[in-house]
């Protein structure tokens, strides 16, 4: 436990500071504080999905720079399917399938063909941008509306926390569950052990009979499902429609979240909440009319935070050793 504390001390300390500041303000402005926290959670959700995708890929040794594209195209396909069928569930499933398919494509390029992983991811991004722009039709709506809000009975009545955590929409709940699922899979199951060994020393895994290709394909496809959920979250749960470039760099921010969270789903949650909080504060500032004449500076906040975090932490965190290197036996 103390070990965990030391490893994540920066994330934990930052969160503690935020919690303290929030509780302090909650004393006299409860409604607003709750709103900021709820907004932070909502803003963090797509980052959680994206970063969980990243962690599945990178723990198996594949850099996925294409999360942005996976989320964008999943948001698009999810929206189109939900709009055409009227079923949100069909839309969400279509989003997951899109992400999974793109994950399989990335696996094909980087595992089977042993191409450069960063370029393969860039191809995904550009393709997603081109396809979603070319096929997008203005004016489509969701016949069923966004995903519905679900409040979890008595839990929702808890002060502050209830409103923040227990009155949400389904994909947000799902993201909170998936954090623990991914953690459990990576650090407790046989598959997780295989994944981590493939991501560290693929030749060692191969010599004990583990198929590096199989592990990487599976993780990239599973990760793609997670990114697809992130995309579906954006178009079907957060906004309720599709806009060009609607991911707006979140797929890349998710990579920074993954690094800041030290390739660990629980760390990732903390880091995503931090970014979500930065975005929520940004919205709140705009809401209150601060810097009203210069909204661009507020617009920069998440990206600047991202750069600062990367510059401050990437050197100290240790990525899986085999990340980025194509593996071949001979």
């Amino acid at each position: 436990m103390s070990d965990l504390f030391i490893r994540f001390r920066w994330v934990i300390l930052t969160i503690l500071v935020f919690v303290f500041v929030t509780l302090f303000t909650a004393e006299f402005q409860q409604a607003q504080t709750t709103a900021v926290l709820a907004s932070a959670l909502r803003q963090s959700t797509p980052l959680v999905f994206g970063a969980l995708c990243g962690v599945m890929c990178e723990r198996s040794g594949v850099v996925n720079i294409g999360i942005e594209g996976q989320m964008l195209l999943s948001a698009f396909v999810g929206f189109m399917v939900a709009s055409a069928t009227g079923s949100l569930i069909a839309g969400i499933l279509a989003g997951m399938a899109t992400g999974a398919l793109m994950g399989a494509g990335l696996a094909g390029l980087s595992v089977t063909l042993q191409g450069d992983q960063i370029i393969a991811g860039t191809v995904l991004n550009i393709a997603a941008f081109g396809i979603s722009s070319y096929f997008f039709q203005q004016g489509l709506t969701l016949p069923s509306g966004k995903t519905p809000q679900v409040s979890l009975g008595p839990l929702a009545d808890l002060p502050v926390i209830g409103r923040v955590f227990f009155i949400n929409r389904p994909l947000t709940y799902l993201s909170l569950i998936l954090i623990w699922v991914v953690w459990f899979v990576l650090f407790r199951t046989r598959w997780g052990l295989w994944t981590r060994s493939v991501g560290e020393v693929p030749s060692a895994a191969e010599t004990v009979g583990i198929s590096v290709a199989r592990v990487r394909y599976t993780n990239l496809i599973a990760g793609g499902c997670l990114a697809g959920l992130g995309g579906a979250y954006l178009s079907l749960e957060a906004v309720g429609s599709f806009e060009r470039m609607m991911t707006n760099g979140r797929g890349f921010v998710a990579l920074a979240v993954m690094i800041f969270g030290r390739w660990n789903p629980i760390g990732i949650w903390g880091a995503a909440l931090l970014f979500g909080y930065a975005s929520a504060v940004q919205t709140q500032l705009q809401f209150r009319g601060w810097l009203a004449d210069d909204p661009q500076f507020i617009g920069m906040i998440p990206y600047v935070v991202c750069i600062v975090v990367l510059a401050g932490f990437v050197g100290r965190a240790r990525p899986p050793a085999a990340v980025g290197q194509p593996y071949s036996r001979e």
Binding site: L193, R196, S197
Partner: peptide, 10 residues
């Protein structure tokens, strides 16, 4: 193996 096939972090 000559170059040990071990995962150092495990």
């Amino acid at each position: 193996h000559q170059h040990f096939q071990l995962v150092p972090v495990l």
